[in-house]
Design a protein around this nucleic acid. Structure first.
Length: 427
RNA sequence: GGAGAGGUGGCUGAGUGGUCGAAAGCACCGCACUCGAAAUGCGGCGUACUCGUGAGGGUACCGUGGGUUCGAAUCCCACCCUCUCCGCCA
């Protein structure tokens, strides 16, 4: 959500920013709406002011027993009442239109985001690890089926497409990955572990920007709540409506949760395997910072995510998304892409975004220095640290041997109760 | 799920139709007293929007949204949340 006063001050900057993301100019329309709204508000307030004056007079006339004067004044107010009703309606209508319009406009890209229309214009900023050129490259679906531990058919029977049943070693490996990631982020990177709600209200999902535009990507419950598509929603909303003490910032929060996505727009894409599921586990990282801190925090967050891939010894590259490839709420985004031997390509496994004050404005999350006046909107950042489902795919494919068994990465050994190779002789 | 109580400023807490943006206390800031501090005294001290070059003015906000009324923190309705008791339950 953007500040209408900032748009009023420099409409061109906003139109230029939106253009970079392929969005149509909107500033002129917004400014006109706002002008009309303010005019209506002023008219309304003047009418209210007059009504308040007359009402006070009525009170005084009554008190002094002057009934006739009071009656006459009450008649006068009738006209004002009508005017107030009219102006209230006009003002409310304009305010709602302005709000609705503002709510659907994407964040502006940061100045250092490369221009471009789609992922082909993204910029690789670094690469880590070397893909083995001649290693076996069965994909995780074949590997999992051969192991008897990954069952898409059973999942389809009970839940439909885009679900999976994991068993035995793979189920344990998934759990190990989640625990490992959470431990690293909490014990080494200072994130506070959070166990948040998975079902949230409209306002929460509006706050992080999935509503109103992307409702069809979410699951909606019969009692009107939403299943979180990412713990970003729950974690970021912990500061919704709150004024935090600036001294407490940055706030670093993490959670391992299931995520639920309807994948409405993705029919036909990644239909095979675990890459794109309706339900998956993810360790999410969220930082709440001052405006001054967010840039450095963003870089730090990317490194926190990268460290997981390094510890798992999975080859990856870090990509700076171009203006056209960023999500709705982001002003700058890095993606981490992990090497998948079966596809001979890098696939997204983490996305780290600095949202500036875009989400904070939507959810009214502010901070101020103790004892000082004036609260400012905080900056919010979120990133995957990492997507567990995709990490499982990456481990399986990168750690497979000719026999279709999966070596357990060294970093996960403490979490596997002695199991170092999946598909050997364990059960 | 049933029954009841309640949601007021940073906190505690008064206020049941008019001059209440809201008493009082605490906290905080300034001034006075003091060598300094404490105590004491005096004054100040919410947020948002809006009008105005400015000084300053106006409007709204007492959980949220509606309604009644010339006028609502106060009356009515719905919803949200908290607490207590009962029931159910991992």
């Amino acid at each position: 959500m953007h500040d209408i006063r900032a748009i009023r001050l420099d409409p061109d900057a906003y139109d230029t920013g939106w253009a970079k993301r392929g969005a149509a100019p909107a500033a002129a329309e917004l400014v006109a709406l706002d002008e009309a709204r303010r005019a209506a508000q002023t008219a309304l307030q003047q009418a209210q002011s007059r009504r308040n004056e007359v009402s006070a007079l009525i009170g005084r006339a009554r008190a002094s027993g002057n009934v006739e004067v009071a009656e006459a004044l009450m008649a006068d107010v009738e006209l004002l009442k009508r005017e107030i009703a009219e102006q209230t309606a006009i003002e409310a209508e304009l305010a709602e239109r302005l709000r609705d319009r503002l709510a659907t406009l994407p964040n502006l890209p940061a100045p250092d985001v490369p221009p471009g229309d789609d992922e082909t214009a993204n910029v690789e900023v670094r690469r880590w690890g070397e893909p083995y050129a001649d290693s076996p490259a069965k994909d995780h679906v074949d590997l999992g089926a051969a192991l008897g531990m990954m069952d898409f058919e059973a999942a389809a029977r009970m839940s439909g497409a885009r679900f999976v049943v994991l068993r035995a070693g793979l189920a344990r490996l998934e759990r190990a990955l989640g625990q490992f990631m959470l431990d690293v982020q909490t014990q080494e990177h200072g994130y506070v572990e959070v166990s948040p709600p998975l079902l949230v209200r409209d306002e929460a999902v509006f706050g992080t920007g999935q509503l109103p535009k992307f409702a069809e990507d979410l699951f909606h419950t019969t009692d009107g709540r939403w299943l979180i598509p990412t713990a970003e929603v729950s974690l970021t909303n912990t500061v919704a409506g709150v004024i935090t003490d600036e001294a407490a910032l940055p706030l670093r929060l993490t959670a391992l949760t299931p995520c639920f996505r309807s994948e409405a727009g993705a029919s036909g894409r990644d239909t095979r395997g675990m890459i794109r599921q309706h339900q998956f586990q993810k360790v999410e990282l969220v930082s709440i910072t001052t405006p001054e801190q967010s840039g450095a925090e963003h870089e730090r967050m990317v490194e926190c995510a990268e460290s997981i891939l390094k510890r798992l010894e999975l080859p990856f590259r870090t990509v700076l998304l171009c203006t056209g490839d960023m999500g709705f709420t982001a002003r700058k985004t890095y993606d981490l892409e992990v090497w998948l031997p079966s596809q001979k390509t890098y696939r997204e496994i983490s996305s780290c975004s600095n949202c500036g004050d875009f989400q904070a404005r939507r959810m009214d999350a502010r901070a101020k220095r103790a004892g000082e006046k004036g609260a400012r909107f905080v900056h919010t950042l979120n990133g995957s640290g990492l997507a567990v489902g995709r990490a499982l795919v990456a481990v399986m494919e990168n750690y497979q041997d000719e026999g279709g068994r999966i070596a357990v990465p060294q970093a996960l050994h403490p979490y596997m109760r002695g199991l170092t190779r999946i598909g050997a002789e364990e059960g």
